[in-house]
Simulated scan of single mutants.
Amino acid sequence: MATKILIPYYSAFGHVYHMAQAVAEGVRKVDDVEVKIVRIKEFAEVEKAMSENEYYVKAQEMQSDIPVATHEDLKWADGIIWGIPTRYGSMPAQMKQYLDSAGGLWMNGELEGKATAVFTSTGSIHGGQETTALTSFVPFMHFGMIFVGLPYGENPEQLTSDAVGGSPYSASTVAGPEGGEQPKEVDMTMAGRLGARVAKVAGALKTLR
């Protein structure tokens, strides 16, 4: 039976959405896998507040065909790779609410033993590239998931002084202060490697559950 990988993400301006596509491509390079991309539902208040921002509106329209994430998706998956943009160094409220409302899955241990990982986007190099992944690690541990990083041995591009994403904790990209940057090719490559790594780990863990 195929290893099932879920990619739930939240993306206001499309950067994490594009990274999610690269992660999925990496997953598909592993034999006998099935991958599903789902988006975290936006708050109605944010949609209203941002309705005059053309970049936000275009990004949301671009993602309109992606199904909204449910808790059943989490139960379906053997491995989960989260697309989490930073908000003040940690996950945004939209993602936190999705996790907070999954208490039933926590109580029943339904995510225990599943491989998990993070990819992120920040406005600047020091805007939360590492802290977003590290702080996300905490609730995932409460759910009993097994965190998968992105080591230098598999991802030598992150050993650089260039303004690119990537760390041992997650794949990432720098959107720029105004959100005008797009993920660089190297960022997408790192995202794909993370997808493949999680798919392999999830497949191995599946045999133990």
Results as ranks from 00 to 15, higher is better:
Ala2Ser: 15
Ile5Arg: 11
Ile5Gly: 02
Ile7His: 03
Ala12Tyr: 07
Gly14Asn: 05
Gly14Glu: 05
His15Asn: 06
Ala20Trp: 04
Gln21Asp: 13
Ala22Phe: 11
Ala24Tyr: 10
Glu25Ile: 04
Gly26Ser: 09
Gly26Met: 07
Lys29Asp: 11
Val30Asn: 09
Val30Met: 13
Asp32Met: 07
Val35Ala: 09
Val38Arg: 13
Phe43Arg: 02
Glu45Arg: 03
Val46Leu: 14
Glu47Tyr: 08
Ala49Tyr: 11
Met50Tyr: 06
Glu52Gly: 06
Asn53Ser: 04
Asn53Leu: 08
Tyr56Lys: 03
Lys58Arg: 12
Gln60Met: 14
Ser64Asp: 13
Val68Arg: 02
Ala69Pro: 03
Thr70Met: 04
His71Gln: 08
Leu74Ser: 00
Trp76Phe: 12
Asp78Pro: 06
Gly79Thr: 02
Ile80Met: 09
Ile80Ala: 06
Ile80Asn: 02
Ile81Pro: 08
Trp82Ile: 00
Gly83Val: 05
Gly89Tyr: 11
Met91Val: 08
Met91Ser: 03
Ala93Gly: 06
Tyr98Val: 03
Ser101Gln: 04
Ala102Leu: 02
Gly104Asn: 15
Glu110Asn: 01
Leu111His: 00
Gly113Phe: 14
Val118Lys: 08
Thr120Trp: 01
Thr122Cys: 12
Ser124Cys: 01
Gly127Cys: 05
Gln129Tyr: 09
Thr135Glu: 03
Phe137Gln: 07
Val138Cys: 00
Pro139Phe: 03
Phe140Arg: 02
Phe140Asp: 01
Ile146Ala: 14
Ile146Gly: 05
Val148Trp: 09
Leu150His: 05
Leu150Gly: 04
Leu150Ile: 05
Pro151Asp: 15
Tyr152Glu: 10
Gly153Lys: 09
Gly153Thr: 11
Glu154Leu: 11
Glu157Lys: 12
Gln158Glu: 14
Leu159Thr: 10
Leu159Ala: 14
Thr160Val: 08
Val164Met: 08
Gly165Lys: 11
Ser167Leu: 14
Pro168Asn: 15
Tyr169Trp: 15
Tyr169Met: 12
Ser170Asp: 11
Ala171Trp: 07
Val174Arg: 00
Gly176His: 10
Pro177Asn: 11
Pro177Leu: 13
Gly179Glu: 10
Glu185Cys: 10
Glu185Tyr: 09
Glu185Ala: 15
Glu185Val: 06
Asp187Ser: 10
Met188Pro: 03
Ala191Arg: 07
Gly192Tyr: 14
Gly192Met: 13
Gly192Trp: 15
Arg193Gln: 14
Val198Cys: 09
Val198Arg: 02
Val198Gln: 12
Ala199Glu: 12
Ala202Asn: 03
Ala204Asn: 11
Leu205Lys: 10
